[in-house]
Design a protein around this nucleic acid. Sequence first.
RNA 1: GCCGGAGUGGCGGAAUGGCAUACGCGCACGACUCAAAAUCGUGUUCCCUUACGGGAUUGAGGGUUCAAGUCCCUCCUCCGGCACCA
Length: 823
Amino acid sequence: MSEYDPKKIEAKWQKIWAESGIYKSSEDQDRPKFYVLNEFPYPSGEGLHVGHLKGHIATDIYARMKRMQGYSVLHPMGWDAFGLPAENYAIKHKIHPREAVEQNIARFKSQLNLIGPDYDWSREINTTDPDYYKWTQWIFLQMFKKGLAYESNEPINWCPSCQTGLANEDLENGKCERCGSQVVKKPMRQWVLKITKYADRLLDDLEALNWPEFIKEGQRQWIGKSDGLLFKARVKDLPDGKAGTKIELETFSAHYEACYADTFVVIAPDHALLDDLIKGVEGEKEIRNKVEEINIKRLQDKYKTGELEGVFTGRFLDDPLGNGHLPIWVANFAVTDYGTGVIKCSAHDEQDFAFAKKYNIPIKIVLVPQDQELKKRVENFEVCYSDMKNGILLEPLNLSGKTGAELRDLIAEYVIENKWAKRVTMYRLRDWVFSRQRYWGEPIPLIHCDGKGSPPTGGCGVVAVPESELPVKLPEVKHYEPTGTGESPLADIPEWVNVKCPKCGGKGRRETNTMPQWAGSSWYYLRFVDPHNEGVLVDKKIEKYWAGVDVYVGGAEHVTRHLIYARFWHKFLYDIGAVSTIEPFSKRIGTGLIHASDGRKMSKRWGNVANPDEVIERWGADTFRLYEMFLGPFADSVAWNDEAIIGPRRFLERVWKMVTQNSKRKTQNQSVDLKISKYIRGISSDIENFKFNTAVSKLMILSRELENLVPNTYNLETFLKLLAPFAPHICEELWHQLGHTDSIHIQKWPQVSELTGVEGNVINLRVQINSRIGGSIFVSSDSSEEEVKTVALSSPIIAKRLEGKQVLRVVYKPGIVLNVLTN
RNA sequence: GCCGGAGUGGCGGAAUGGCAUACGCGCACGACUCAAAAUCGUGUUCCCUUACGGGAUUGAGGGUUCAAGUCCCUCCUCCGGCACCA
């Protein structure tokens, strides 16, 4: 009998598995398919820490069970390697990003392989591989051709440290998500994807998804749909209405029920129209100074406490509803990015009310509560009343006297009929700013045509690179550091930039912006299905077979980033007939983080990183895998604990001994052990539901039972099959020691016995007296209430406890409990 | 502020309305050992009791039920998401 030596058996079996190809996926038409995917990693220079492996272990366990259950399993892995971190790492280490990425991938892959995963590496993809990003560019071109990619010069978020424009999704509390710098608004030429066109579908299709509620809700809020009215009105010069300007302002209102109360207007301090609006008014300079002050204070987060600040612009809006001339104020609480950036304000909004009070702006009441006392206080402007549902409306006069809820539609119809407003739907979601002024990304495959002859001759405008010329390869370049000029480093390579226009053959310049880091990851799950296809993104037949990732595991940080982008691209690909499903991921499972034992995030900075290489070197991969799954509920964040890993190792030592030392074992016995069925059912459903911690616990309990029983071969083998997904190496080794020559990982998953729960079994029934523990009795599971009652009352222990008491009532739940109620 | 999730031993955590604290760590005692480590065994929610026993207990308070960690209401705390969003 040899000792359990994980190092020896793990290396041995990993080699054999790789050579035998038991994990290769294929479109086997005779078997149902199952596509399980963990988010592919970004290969940073830090390498993986133990927390990164949690999702990989989980999907590995899941995939292994599914394979044993007879599914044709797809469980691939690849690399998301374009983007700022790789580029910054390369700059810091003075190597080319491509080299940095190659090094980092090699390191990541060797670390991933330490856990003995069942990844089909023949399907490995890398977003920076021209054969891959050819198709990223192809998708962009299709969007361009459908008018979903457009050039814009709007002010966008600019990160002064990363020296690139960013999308809203790249911000965290107004700061750059990557480096934490305060972003500034900067007008610049950029490419934008019309994700807003898909807003409704992204919202509506959420309902059918088997996703955690917090993710769905997060996306709903991110999309931020709200229906309302868009009012349009002209700006006046003077309070008396003489000499009107040409400026027209649009205001959006979702709570328009009380629109007759509007007495003033506010505009965002960074609004594009503000400059024209203020031009020529009395005290213009002071106003501008104040506006500037508000803008600066806002950038410095000075208003987080809810302080209101504003300045009168000197202009008035001619109220379409006939409320006269409404003063236009600049207010710190108005945001340019939402609605139109201009708001009609009234006494029936907490914030507007407070603002009006502060600056003594006249207000008016048109909405009152039923409660008379409160009504008085509202009418005296003592409190703000904003209940648009239950409040009684006093205006418009022709509709007055009913609640806001009753009148909402009627008021909308009324003002629309009078052409004062129109119905609109606003979204918080903005179109996706898609260009980056950095080197390490997919080149945007477009050419700006300057036309033939000497300029200016107009040219063909922006022309798509012909699909036959894809990929537009990222050129080699000496200096790939960001330029900070609003152009990417690619602009400095004339031999790459200057090309002929594909349309007219005249002078053309390549687009020099690159795509954001999210581009390649927005469709990678599709490429795994058909990774080497040179002629098409993914073959239709093959796509149809694998269609839809059945289980997609990943982190919570992607709720409003990757998971929205990928859904958007997928829906677009559906629209052009490239894929057959409307959603990419049917089921989403969130991975909880693993914190360091000190409770903080694992980071080199804190020196608290648990390194998987070291942990596996010391304990073995199987112990490591079991431990990570046993730490706590999969979706929860848990703290790494160096001490507790000994538990799973002790468990495996016992398993090893149980199989290798048991000479008294009975010969092959196919009779079904009823007891083990309970574990088969429990462990299978635990894995199915990502409840790995309780599955491990059940395996530990089962092993104890088997140790005590002098297990027969059938039970032992069943146990090994149940443990195999968690601890693939030791189970494979023991399986072979039991005399098998094929792999345990392609055996049939244990089936639950049909014999369980059969009528007439003798069971141990719990007896309670007055709902408290009273004892237990053995009865047949199909006994009647009378029979059970008789047995219970004649049981000595129970009889003794009932001495001197009268039985008033019994409650019988067959198979569960008999509750005897006494006086 | 709005939305989502969670509060259970010394610690990580378990529990289709039916024996709360499974499983693991740690700790205590015992076996083995000259000794230690490792391993194995026993015990381990808290309080009272030498013991036998008894009492309390799932963030707080109320409710439904024969029976509540679990369902309902009010509140507190923590975590996560969104937010001067009109």
